[in-house]
Design a protein around this nucleic acid. Structure first.
Lengths: 342, 342
DNA sequence: TGAAAATACGGAAACGATTGCGAAATGACT
DNA sequence: AGTCATTTCGCAATCGTTTCCGTATTTTCA
């Protein structure tokens, strides 16, 4: 197909052996400067491109990192990947990107495909369906460097990058309480998710700290279909126990809430104050009213994941990825959705 | 590193030769059903995973497709990739994804990295800076299957997938005129872009068809920095020649316009009617007022790109990708940003 | 029954790079 | 001049597959 010159042909052209040419191109000390120059210039002239598979086969590494995430249509994940790419690109690494579409079966399939060394390492955020983690454990035991971010898997002994989920959620909830909310709803995806657990805990603790008790009917676990979520949220907002405040643990549920509110005559922030984990700042400012956000450091999380992996992959004898959770703080940006007359 | 069993070890375990095992796993007619069964079950037992690089080296194909696009933080591109993935995943292909960040130098670097066969094919949408296309031409001449979508490169003889840019823009502009607009602004990225040219032409022709003449100061070419764009748009909106209608040729400039309008006392749609090429329907409905959109069939575009490539890559002796432009129509969804009292 | 054909498998080369080891050429030193 | 170290390069093995051959065994059929 798209085959240019290979090492042997390049060597023949130069009347040298392939080994010499290889060493020259890799700047080996065994080759004289004179021949190095000749080789390099001829390589440029013929536009020689080393075959990545021959190299990968020989060196047993692919210069490729896989990213596995639950969805692509999310500003948060896009930014994380931008962060990863920023770092890895500088080191000549390529990015294989997979979306599980929140489907654990698909997640298993993808990880199985990654068991054969196609990627040197994996960065992942688990699907909301993931409770059985044997597929992740197997991969880790096999020795593939594995890093989690955001939606982590605590029981696998490796490095995880998150934001300060508990504290942010606590602070966000406290902010609502300070604004006068007494009945605060909480929206979440699957309770299996690490982020759900931590953010939920922060929410509960903030309520408790204020002497408030949570209302079960205001704690809505959502699914994947946007329309159903909107409907469930709307019902909750119009129920007997209607809330006066709402914490959304993920971006898309905040949008669903705005959609739900549009179908009612509820006024934000007068009747209902909203805060959400959210990464799309441009959109947050354009919502009506502008949304108070817990802004996750998405790009930085991506960068940190990549930096750690690059260190592990490029330095000679690195230890295993340490079993620790690294937290990068979010920042709360107050907008009109939580403050009257902001 | 993460090395499981290989073919030789598997063969030794079965007391067979590697060639036999290979053939058995590939379901060759030369192998008896009995030994096939034995081989397959042993392979499963030992969790044998063929080395993808050895295979790629031997077969000269990687089962990988590269996607190169200008940015990741865009609903349109995310959806296109979802469409591509949907098709390619079923055929066991992997996706290498690159963002050029609208930087032509980076685009060149990326395409250079793809010259060595790392990907069996490339799906791309060019950056807004791209005018010199020699890097694309070289790749195509080298024989790498190359497909363009959305932001295409007409002069390279291959298949391109777009939406009906001209017609949609014409219709969108006509819609504004029908709603009473007489001075209609047009927002665009670089004039080099195919989508800019076509959408601009549709806009101009619609004006002409209505007997209106375009106002040069209302045609704003934007850059990459959101804040500058907002400022430029605001100045235009407040100028002497202020428009009463606006066509945005891309998603992010519509958002920039909403930001700009927020800083003025302009009322949409009373003072200014807005229509935009836009893919994020959920957001379009949440803007205030909801945005009338020209909705591009992003997912379908991705699917079609992938289907064509898969056909080319998996069928035995396929011809070159035909030099044609395939247009998949957008649909206009009218919302309140263009109709008073909608 | 004997020759031809079909079946089932193994040996070895090939894909394109890297690298340990050996060897020729050059220079240094006594 | 002869020995030895240094520089510079080539030979061949290797990574894990696939596949072209060749071959041994069995089947077919006149």
């Amino acid at each position: 197909m798209s085959t240019g010159v290979n090492l042997k042909e390049l060597a023949a052209e130069l009347k040298l052996s392939p080994s010499t040419v290889s060493r020259a191109l890799n700047d080996s000390y065994e080759i004289s400067e004179a021949t190095k120059k000749k080789v390099v210039s001829m390589a440029e002239k013929l536009n020689y491109q080393p075959n990545p598979f021959a190299r990968s086969l020989r060196e047993n590494k692919s210069k490729t990192i896989a990213v596995v995430m639950p969805e692509r249509m999310s500003n948060f994940f896009s930014k994380v990947i931008d962060g990863i790419e920023e770092v890895t690109h500088q080191h000549g690494y390529h990015l294989l990107i997979y979306s599980t579409h929140e489907d654990v079966e698909r997640e298993k399939k993808i990880l199985n495909l990654l068991m054969n060394g196609r990627a040197d390492a994996i960065v992942m955020s688990v699907s909301s369906q993931t409770s059985d983690i044997s597929h992740l454990a197997r991969l880790h035991e096999r020795g593939v460097p594995l890093i989690f971010f955001d939606r982590i898997c605590e029981s696998i002994p490796t490095t995880k990058f998150i934001t300060n989920d508990y504290e942010s959620s606590f602070e966000g909830t406290r902010h609502l309480i300070q604004q006068g909310c007494r009945k605060i709803a909480f929206l979440m995806l699957s309770k299996e998710l690490s982020i759900t657990r931590e953010r939920y805990r922060g929410y509960l603790d903030a309520l408790k700290a204020a002497g408030l008790s949570p209302t079960p009917s205001l704690q809505v676990t959502c699914a994947h279909e946007e329309e159903k979520n909107v409907e469930a949220i709307r019902n909750m907002l119009l129920s007997e126990d209607r809330p006066d405040g709402l914490v959304s643990s993920v971006e898309k549920l905040a949008l669903a809430t705005y959609h739900a509110v549009k179908k009612t005559d509820i006024k934000i922030p007068e009747d209902l104050k909203i805060i959400s984990f959210f990464s799309n700042l441009s959109i947050a400012g354009l919502l009506t009213p502008p949304l108070t956000t817990i802004t996750q450091p998405a790009f930085t999380i991506g960068e940190e994941c990549a930096k750690l992996l690059i260190k592990k992959l490029t330095k000679p004898r690195q230890p295993d990825l340490p079993n620790q959770i690294i937290s990068i703080p979010s920042s709360i940006t107050i907008r009109s959705s939580t403050v009257v007359d902001y």
